[in-house]
Amino acid sequence: MKRRSAIKNLLIIAGGIAILPSCSQESGKASIQLNNLDINQNQEDLLAEITETIIPKTDSPGAKALNLHLFVLKMVDDCHDKDDQKSFINGLSELDKLSKKQFSKSFNEASQAQRTQLLQLLESDKETNDDMYRFYAITKRRTIQGFLNSKYVMKDLKRYELIPGRYDGYASANEITKSAS
């Protein structure tokens, strides 16, 4: 009997050791695996707020609900060269510093109006800081791309029909002349 309980305990311990690495996620690291970018959790949260400022939640879901900040990170990590990636990281940290300088609070703590004002300042003043402007341009472009390719837009959003509309072969001539006049 003692042998059976010893083998059972040994199997339980071995199973626990096998499962343990998957349970210990490093705190402070980004929530997705990135090969070229080194982003921490605070930077990811900051990027989430920036994308939410670009596409806020209204009747439609905002950027946070669609996880567009993760899309931006993945696209920058996979599709941009080293210079863009470096500018992206530098611009992200410099944007938070600019927010602290302008409003005496970080971008995450700023009000929606202050966030919008800061991003409008970045868009209008391209020569101030090249890294910050490149970061904003990349983030805005990838956020819009992610939104337009999201499941919400592709499946749930109603399609716009170009004029004159689709052909209806079953419409009577009387209906067509009434709608034309």
Rank of each mutant, 00 (worst) to 15 (best):
K101S: 15
A173H: 01
E175I: 03
K155G: 05
T51K: 03
R159L: 10
A110Y: 04
Y133P: 12
I13K: 12
R115T: 08
K155L: 06
L92T: 09
S172W: 00
N149K: 07
D83M: 11
D77F: 06
L68G: 03
G62N: 00
K158P: 10
D131W: 03
P164V: 01
Q117A: 14
F107P: 10
L70T: 04
K8C: 08
E49V: 11
L98G: 13
I89C: 04
R166M: 09
I13Y: 06
E44W: 11
A171C: 00
Q25N: 09
N149F: 01
L68D: 02
S150P: 01
K126M: 10
A173V: 09
L47C: 08
I176K: 00
T58G: 04
N149D: 08
D38K: 13
N9T: 06
I138L: 15
S5R: 11
E127T: 14
E26V: 02
I138Y: 03
E109Q: 06
V153P: 03
N129E: 07
F147H: 02
F147A: 05
C79Y: 14
A30V: 04
N9P: 04
D59A: 02
P61Y: 00
Q33T: 09
K8H: 09
T128I: 12
S87C: 13
D168W: 01
L34I: 03
K126R: 15
L68H: 02
S27T: 09
A110Q: 03
E109D: 07
R159N: 12
L119D: 11
I50G: 07
N174L: 10
S124I: 14
L98W: 13
M75N: 15
S104I: 00
C79L: 14
R142Q: 15
K126H: 10
Y160I: 08
